[in-house]
Simulated assay, not measured.
Amino acid sequence: MIQKHELPILEYDSNSEEVIRPNHGAEQLKLPEKCVYAFLGDAVDDYAFEAEATVAETFETITRNYPVYIVKQDGMEFCLCAAPLGAPAAAQLMDFLISCGCKKIISTGSCGVLTDLAENEFLIPVKALRDEGTSYHYLPASRYIELNKNIRDAIEHTLLVQNSPFQECVTWTTDGFFRETRDMV
Rank of each mutant, 00 (worst) to 15 (best):
E6N: 12
L7D: 13
L7K: 13
P8G: 03
I9Q: 13
L10Q: 12
L10V: 09
L10K: 10
E11P: 01
E11D: 07
Y12H: 15
Y12R: 12
D13N: 15
D13R: 13
D13M: 07
N15A: 08
S16D: 11
E17L: 12
E18V: 15
E18K: 14
V19F: 08
V19S: 10
P22H: 05
N23A: 12
N23F: 06
N23L: 04
N23M: 06
L29H: 02
E33L: 00
A38L: 07
A38P: 04
L40Y: 05
G41Y: 10
A43G: 01
D45H: 14
D46H: 08
D46E: 12
F49L: 07
E50I: 02
A51L: 01
A53C: 02
A53I: 00
V55L: 05
E57H: 15
T58M: 06
T63G: 01
T63Y: 14
T63M: 11
R64S: 11
R64G: 04
N65S: 15
N65D: 15
P67S: 10
I70K: 05
V71H: 00
G75I: 01
M76I: 04
E77N: 03
F78S: 00
F78W: 04
C79H: 05
P84Q: 11
L85P: 07
L85E: 15
L85T: 13
A87I: 02
A87Q: 05
A91D: 09
A91F: 15
Q92K: 15
D95V: 05
F96S: 04
F96R: 08
L97R: 06
I98C: 11
S99P: 02
K103H: 11
K104G: 00
I105S: 00
I106A: 08
I106K: 03
S107V: 11
C111T: 15
G112K: 11
L114W: 10
D116E: 13
D116H: 08
L117W: 00
E119I: 09
N120W: 07
E121N: 08
F122M: 10
L123F: 05
L123S: 10
P125N: 06
P125D: 07
V126R: 14
K127L: 06
A128Q: 10
L129Q: 06
R130V: 02
R130E: 01
D131Y: 05
S135K: 01
H137G: 06
H137R: 13
H137P: 00
L139D: 05
L139W: 11
P140W: 03
S142Y: 04
Y144C: 06
E146P: 00
E146K: 12
L147Y: 04
N148W: 01
K149W: 06
K149R: 12
N150Q: 14
A154K: 09
H157G: 01
H157Q: 14
V161G: 02
N163Q: 15
C169Y: 01
C169H: 01
T171R: 00
T173S: 14
T174W: 02
D175K: 07
F178S: 07
R179C: 03
T181D: 04
D183N: 11
